[in-house]
Design a protein around this nucleic acid. Structure first.
Lengths: 142, 142
DNA sequence: TAGCACTTGCAAACGGTTTGCAAGTGCTAT
DNA sequence: ATAGCACTTGCAAACCGTTTGCAAGTGCTA
């Protein structure tokens, strides 16, 4: 089974039609080692181009299907990465929005502590940890 | 020196005019034990009301002056809290956006590890850690 | 207390995201 | 293999939080 066929099977297993735009968006996410914004993805979809709206709808569909994870990392914009990736965190450039993965998470026990101390919450289902700094490119252009 | 006078002095020390809208926004932030959204603040400013635009500009001014901290916690919306508060994190309701403070941070050493392992970043200046769950009100209404 | 510079309110622009609707296209059953 | 239907896509326009331009208003200084 080649890459295209397995992506197609992945979509069908999730009850989704294996359309051209979906296969291409999925392939882009599979090839990336860091989360991508909608603009990133749309700009990679040329010849033939895919409408921005379709990208939004495709990603939302993938999120609902549990294939993709939605992140808010920078200035209220949406970023997406495959949900199959191991739990990790991100390093975000405050200036340009560049994102890099950070492996390793020592937070497993922390969630339990948090919910124990909370007044208004009875469950904590996830957490987000982002580090902010200036990437080497942006540091130079100051 | 009463509360109003000390707020006024705080603004002047930062090189800012102690205008009515600024004093009222500052007072609202001082009274809150958790971060507030722009909508939260604007809705508390009645009789006489303060324009949303003024709230945005006031908060931006406060951020520039180092009086207030800008947070992105939920669906790309802006939240603000006093910068003078001790470093802490937040617990955010995925459903309604309710925010609660989480005291204690064991992340001091983590930033150093992160920058050491990073390819593209040479400095990490801050981090954000948010926990997500369902607050007790939202759990009930499911 | 007069005058100026800074601040505010209003209207309109902005940019990322969402929605409505008609045209297009995978998939299923023949 | 193919016809038909339901789901998907593209386009245009709406949406909503936020920002900008500009004239009127108001703290602060002399």
């Amino acid at each position: 089974m080649n890459e295209h066929e397995s992506s197609s099977a992945l979509l069908k297993a999730a009850g989704l039609r294996a359309t051209q735009p979906r296969l291409r968006v999925l392939s882009i996410l599979e090839d990336s080692t860091y989360p991508l914004s909608v603009a990133d993805i749309a700009s990679m979809l040329k010849r033939p181009s895919v409408d921005q709206v379709t990208v939004y709808r495709t990603l939302e569909t993938f999120v609902q299907a549990g294939i993709v994870q939605h992140l808010e990392l920078h200035q209220g914009r949406s970023y997406f990465e495959l949900a199959t990736r191991e739990h990790h965190h991100h390093l975000v450039c405050r200036s340009c929005g560049r994102v890099e993965d950070v492996e390793g998470c020592e937070m497993d026990s922390m969630e339990k502590k948090v919910v124990k101390k909370s007044k208004h919450f009875s469950t904590v289902s996830s957490h987000a940890l982002e580090f902010f700094g200036d990437c080497k490119t942006c540091v130079q252009t100051r």
